[in-house]
């Protein structure tokens, strides 16, 4: 780990201003992913701005009837919030399916969105990785790719996004609120927040330099049956092979987002409209153009079968 200076920020604007002033500065909140990567020198900030004192740890109702989740709300608290449990159960379930109790106590809403991939070649600094060292190549292509993306990948990168929470948020049409160093704020729809790898897999989100996530807002509840189904080899404390976040209404309509299949939470609104026709019809659209490897081709049928089971469960 490279040496770094450390400061505690007191308000978002100050934090954003400071990050611009210092070369190679980074925000740190829960730290559960950033420190992990700093130890391996995959992340090498020269300055850390501790944002834990920014009072962004509240969950409040919005004027539109939704919820505004502070960037610093811990995963445990978000999952346990009675409003989230009641009205956004898919989010609560997604959070509880992720990581461990210890990690959820520390990990924050914003940090979870910004998690970096768990591709083992990204994690091993001896290996080429376009995400870690742009232009060096992708060792996962032609290598061990069982966990990797089956859709939306590129010649440069087939990594997946590891978050469960983000998949739940994608199904809920969440919006990411930010503040920029100049004090300007903006709201980024979650669909646009995470990028596909393309030729620039190191550019993972829509955030500009120094931009700080302040909150995630959820629109007003849409009702329906909320299910988050995470499929993995180990029964707990493991990343998804495939996960399905679904909100299904009584008439069979609804929404579906997938985790574990792409560089971002994977949802195509037009595939949602296939829901009344069943899992096969949804997947035909949702996973059209999929380019799996030999090792992860099973994810296509796994995703369809898992959605099938979810739809059966939703019918009760």
């Amino acid at each position: 780990m490279k040496s770094f200076t450390y400061e505690r920020a007191r308000n978002p604007a100050e934090a954003a201003a400071s990050v611009l002033r210092k070369p190679d500065a980074k925000f740190i909140a829960g730290g559960t992913n950033l420190l992990d990567l700093m130890k391996l020198e995959i992340e090498t900030p020269a300055h850390l701005i501790d944002v834990n004192g920014l009072a962004l740890d509240k969950i409040e109702p919005t004027a539109e009837g939704g919820l505004r989740i502070g960037a610093l709300v811990r995963n445990t608290d978000l999952a346990a919030d009675s409003r989230v449990r009641r009205d956004y159960a898919v989010l609560s379930r997604a959070l509880l399916a992720g990581a461990s109790g210890q990690l959820r106590n520390k990990a924050t809403t914003a940090g979870n969105l910004l998690q970096r991939t768990r591709c083992p070649y990204f994690y091993d600094t001896n290996q080429p990785c376009n995400k870690r060292r742009p232009g060096s190549g992708c060792a996962a292509i032609g290598g061990f790719s069982r966990q990797h993306a089956v859709v939306g990948g590129s010649e440069a990168c087939i990594a997946t996004h590891p978050s469960d929470m983000a998949v739940g948020m994608r199904a809920l049409d969440a919006t990411v609120e930010t503040v920029r160093p100049d004090g300007a704020t903006r709201a980024i729809p979650i669909a646009e927040f995470h990028h596909l790898p393309g030729s620039t897999p190191h550019v993972e989100t829509a955030l500009s330099p120094g931009e700080l996530i302040t909150a995630v807002t959820l629109p007003k509840p849409v009702g329906g049956t909320h299910i988050y189904r995470k499929v993995r080899d180990r029964a707990s404390y493991a990343f998804a092979l495939v996960s399905v976040a679904a909100i299904v209404q009584r008439d069979g309509t609804g929404r579906v987002a997938l985790g574990g299949v792409a560089h971002k939470p994977w949802r195509i609104e037009s595939a949602d409209s296939q829901l009344p026709r069943g899992a096969k019809a949804v997947m035909a659209e949702l996973l059209s153009g999929a380019r799996p490897t030999r090792e992860n081709a099973f994810k296509l049928s796994l995703a369809e079968r898992t959605l099938g089971a979810v739809l059966t469960e939703a019918k009760g």
Binding site: Y6, G31, L35, T76, S100, L103
Partner: peptide, 21 residues
């Protein structure tokens, strides 16, 4: 999880948090 300690009443992985925080 071998490093689990309880901070402010909550269990965390003490290996993934900086002491200065």
């Amino acid at each position: 999880g071998a490093c689990t300690v309880i901070v402010g009443g909550r269990r965390i992985n003490s290996c993934l948090t900086l002491a200065v925080m």
